[in-house]
Design a protein around this nucleic acid. Structure first.
Lengths: 154, 154
DNA sequence: GTGCATGCAAATCTTTTGCACTCTT
DNA sequence: AAGAGTGCAAAAGATTTGCATGCAC
């Protein structure tokens, strides 16, 4: 799974900026979590996996508890998106674009057999959101998840 | 929250039929769970709530563990649909129509404030399903959930 | 009678919380 | 120096599992 080293510095800078702008401290743990997420690019990983990766690849120690706390914070800052399949740990993905793009997050396909996760290009929500907004619903959030068997596993 | 007594007998019969057709035994516990779900009609309730309701309204005892096991079974039989909002217990809803209608289940809006659950009429999945199927994905299942504030709570 | 289903207890898994200590600001 | 952030341990909550007993078939 190749990472895109060239995109990492700017993404990490974005994280630092978001933290300081919102008066949160730029700590080693938080940067380590950010790095782990950015390295996984568009994939969705669990807090546990993030924790593992930090332990393996970094000299920094970062408790699992801090991973959770950092992810919660990052989500508030719009840096990550969260999604969850039934009965499993939540998964987080780095959001490389603007935080207000609410359609970039929880749309993906996951194979029941090989666990492969594949992002879905489309966001089906836009139209429905409009019609709900028209009827007076506000603060809308949505989740859309698809499972099944991928071509390799069927 | 008024129930529709007239629809209950047939729904319960449907449950019994599905059980015996698939060589599962028709037990008091399973019927109690079915009754609790049917009484709640289109609402989505948690295993805990089902358990509570059985304890309150029925003379039958049914352990929470059995509620879980029964719900898992019912889901396999297509009698109930399961949905889950972040960080909360899963919720189950009785499916009054044919089990193969994959668009009847997890499409609803839930107000973050008053917890009101409102079904969404549209199924946005059809087109995406087609394109995934064309690419070789099979056994597709999907979930689509929306939260926010309803007109009364905004 | 057979063996599926149940109840109870305990385990598991994810996530959160309390608290003393540490490090960023 | 102040207090936000962290690590560790323990709690909390939902769901699952093991096993002996009980009930539907």
């Amino acid at each position: 799974m190749a990472t895109k080293p060239s995109s990492q510095p700017s993404q990490l800078e974005r994280a630092k900026k978001a933290l300081s702008e919102h008066h949160h401290r730029v700590t080693k743990s938080r940067l380590a979590v950010a790095r782990a997420l950015i390295a996984h690019n568009s994939l969705w990983i669990t807090p546990e996996e993030i924790h593992q990766q930090i332990q393996n690849q970094e000299l920094v120690a970062c408790d699992l508890t801090s991973v959770y706390r950092t992810l919660t914070l990052f989500e508030r800052l719009g840096l990550v998106a969260r999604s969850e399949f039934y009965g499993e740990a939540a998964r987080y993905g780095w959001r490389s674009e603007r935080p207000d793009d609410s359609c970039e997050h929880a749309h993906f396909f996951k194979c029941k057999n090989c666990q492969e996760v594949e992002p879905l290009s489309q966001c089906l929500f836009a139209d429905l959101a409009k019609s709900l907004a028209k009827r007076g619903f506000t603060n809308l959030e949505h989740r859309f998840e698809v499972t099944g068997l991928c071509p390799n596993c069927r």
